[in-house]
């Protein structure tokens, strides 16, 4: 299992320069990918733009959206944006899409919330077709286009993974929650007669450095997930705040068959990246010898 790190692009107060340095430093470190999240109505940077910026200052790491709210984009536009990032980065984009959970994002974009599932299904078909046909430019690094992942917890989400995508991205939680979701994705994949297995991506949150950091991280998560009501407390309670917790989390996900685990920061401070890097080194994880592209292509 590979470990990636999220950009602080959805942590309020993150300066542009921080995001750029973060990307550069992550590329030098033991991370295999950079992740971004998507919310229009929140103090955050647009995710695909952030990945494009990261592309300019990195060589190795995959650039992954976990996830981007697909239906908020025009299909052709999204195909072009994604192909551009992929071409600009030498083929390192992994496009994870989902319908998203918040109506306020849809309202802000002026897009209908209730047909988002159908929209995403259409979009997944269109993206792949446009990339393959080469009818939009630029050409992505691979002729079929970047890898497509689908996220979400609904039954239809898993069916979409099997029908349209290359893999599944889980929204976060303890390893056993991921395990159940991974089973569903694998069951759908096998039922559809797709060869091999689906890529399985997952995420978690961290806040390192002691009690003050842990509290700050929890405050952020309660704020970010306030829209879930009381459940925000539970999400915040799951934050990883020390090396042991991170080691257990990694092990749990690995055992459940995760291919790539992206750990997201909850504090906009480069020190968080440094501490996570140290912890991963301590667990025997170093910058991969083969580059991320090769590993991903296997």
């Amino acid at each position: 299992m590979r470990v990636g790190v999220g950009l602080p692009s959805t942590v309020p107060g993150a300066e542009g320069q921080l995001i750029i340095s973060w990307a550069r430093r992550a590329d030098e470190g033991p991370f295999s990918s950079l992740g971004v999240l998507d919310r229009i109505v929140y103090d955050s940077y647009e995710p695909l733009t952030s990945l494009a910026a990261a592309a300019a200052v990195t060589q190795r790491v995959l650039l992954a959206s976990t996830i981007v709210i697909g239906p908020l984009y025009n299909d052709t536009r999204l195909a072009k944006v994604a192909a551009s990032i992929d071409a600009l980065s030498g083929g390192r984009l992994v496009l994870g899409l989902a319908v998203g959970a918040r109506k306020d994002d849809y309202d802000a974009a002026g897009i209908d919330y209730h047909t988002r599932g159908k929209r995403l299904a259409e979009q997944l078909t269109t993206l792949r077709t446009l990339w393959e046909e080469g009818s939009i430019s630029p050409r992505a690094a691979r002729s079929r286009g970047p890898d497509l992942l689908v996220g979400g917890a609904s039954d239809q989400g898993f069916a979409r993974v099997a029908r349209y995508a290359d893999g599944y991205v889980h929204g976060g939680g303890p390893p056993r929650a991921f395990s159940r979701a991974a089973d569903k994705a694998r069951a759908a994949w096998s039922d559809a007669g797709r060869p091999g297995k689906p890529q399985l991506w997952a995420q978690g949150y961290f806040a390192l450095g002691g009690d003050a950091a842990a509290e700050a991280g929890q405050r952020y998560l309660k704020d970010y997930y306030a829209f879930t009501g009381p459940f925000a407390e539970r999400i915040a309670a799951g934050i990883l705040t020390n090396p042991q917790a991170i080691a257990q989390f990694i092990r749990g996900y690995e055992e459940a068959g995760c291919d790539e685990l992206v750990l997201f920061p909850t504090i906009a401070d480069i020190g968080q990246l440094e501490q996570l890097t140290t912890i991963l080194h301590g667990l025997g994880r170093h910058a991969p010898v083969a580059d991320a592209l090769e590993v991903q292509r296997q």
Binding site: A121, D155, Q156, F158, A159, R163, R180, D183, K184, A185, A187, A188, D191, A192
Partner: peptide, 14 residues
């Protein structure tokens, strides 16, 4: 189960 139409899928799991 399912697949008579593209949107006809069962609830997956073990």
């Amino acid at each position: 189960a399912g697949q008579a139409t593209p949107d006809g899928e069962p609830a997956y799991g073990r």
